[in-house]
């Protein structure tokens, strides 16, 4: 696909389970088991799914913070897993991450200025004067004041800390930012502020986001396209509007029916899934969702459905549509 900033091709990450004195291999957790998608310049791809479905692992694989078991990630047509440490280091200027927990993502021993200056120092950009200037710009950009620079992270609220994290990620002028549940740890009132900030910054700086979240309304608000993940796989990926209006995969339908509606008068049909998510160490045969699927057919138990396009921009992995 041309024009894609990022292309993820069949990436897998299996974590080995070590057991016993001799670290015997006792199987593996298939956290991400063959994920493919692409992200175009300037768009936001949302990734949703319940806890443990591999969203965050996917985010880290995209940035090569984890080494994959197999597969490739093309960033501007370069396979990042083939790059040497130094080439990767150069590339890291272009891809950054914003973390979920603003309390753990900032070094408590550094001042805010030192935290935001860090990327510039690592990449040897500018001298000390211009770096400090850049820190001021960044603080200003994310809605903090320059006098905040001499403070330590613990002197800030969660929302302010998240802004500091955003400032750090932006300091190198990246093209792609992986937002790993950037608002899940924040108060609802602060969530919208941070989301609006992220969207403003996207417009201003032409950023591309991969937005990982489990709050569906949050993802709907920010995403152009959305991928739904279940047990280490993408089951459905489509334009945000369309997916929210007319989800095709039974899992997505169930997820969407769980979104609360502000009007108590509206009666909706809710699809309540039974049972738990199966263990990623031993996923079900056939379709991974068949154990909980309300529309399960015989073929679902035997054969794994591939992610296939049903229309121009709509892809779904379900036997119902194949």
């Amino acid at each position: 696909m041309s024009g894609a900033l990022l292309e993820v091709k069949d990436v897998k990450k299996h974590f080995p389970i070590k057991r016993g004195l001799m670290s015997k291999n006792a199987g593996c957790i298939k956290a991400v088991d063959g994920v493919s998608f692409s992200v175009h310049k300037g768009e936001t791809l949302g990734l949703v799914g319940e806890s443990g479905c591999g969203k965050s692992t996917t985010g880290r694989l995209v940035l090569r913070l984890l080494e994959p078991t197999s597969g490739e990630v093309l960033f501007e047509d370069k396979n990042i897993y083939r790059l040497s440490f130094n080439q990767m280091r150069q590339l890291r200027r272009d891809m950054q991450i914003i973390f979920q927990d603003p309390y753990a993502s900032l070094n408590p021993r550094l001042t805010v200025e030192d935290i935001i200056i860090e990327p510039l120092v690592i990449h040897g950009i500018g001298d000390s004067h211009s770096r400090r200037q850049r820190v001021k710009e960044m603080l200003d950009l994310v809605g903090l004041s320059s006098y905040h620079g001499s403070r330590y992270p613990h002197e800030f609220s969660g929302g302010q800390r998240q802004r500091i994290g955003i400032a750090r990620a932006l300091a190198l002028n990246p093209k792609l930012i992986v937002c790993d549940e950037p608002v899940s740890a924040l108060d609802v009132s602060i969530q919208s502020q941070v989301l609006n900030l992220l969207m403003q910054l996207q417009d201003m700086l032409k950023l591309t986001y991969i937005f990982i979240a489990h709050g569906l309304n949050v993802v709907k608000h920010v995403s152009d396209r959305v991928g739904v993940m279940y047990l280490g796989k993408i089951v459905e990926i489509a334009d945000s509007e369309e997916l929210y209006r007319n989800a095709m995969h039974p899992y997505s339908q169930a997820l969407l029916s769980a979104v609360p509606v502000p009007d108590p008068e509206i009666k909706r049909e809710r699809i309540i899934l039974t049972g738990d998510v199966p263990s990623p160490a031993n996923p079900p045969t056939g379709c991974r969702f068949h154990t909980r699927c309300p529309q399960c057919m015989d073929i679902c138990r035997l054969e794994e459905p591939a992610l296939r396009p049903v229309s121009d921009k709509y892809m779904v992995a379900c036997h119902k549509y194949q």
């Binding site: 913070l65 280091r89 890291r92 200027r93 950054q96 991450i97 973390f99 753990a104 860090e118 750090r168």
Partner: peptide, 24 residues
Amino acid sequence: EFVEAEKALGAGNLRIIFKHILPN
């Protein structure tokens, strides 16, 4: 996560060890 953030920024292991982990 702040150590992971450093890796994402491209910091080397020694920088992470001595600048970020040691002071903590």
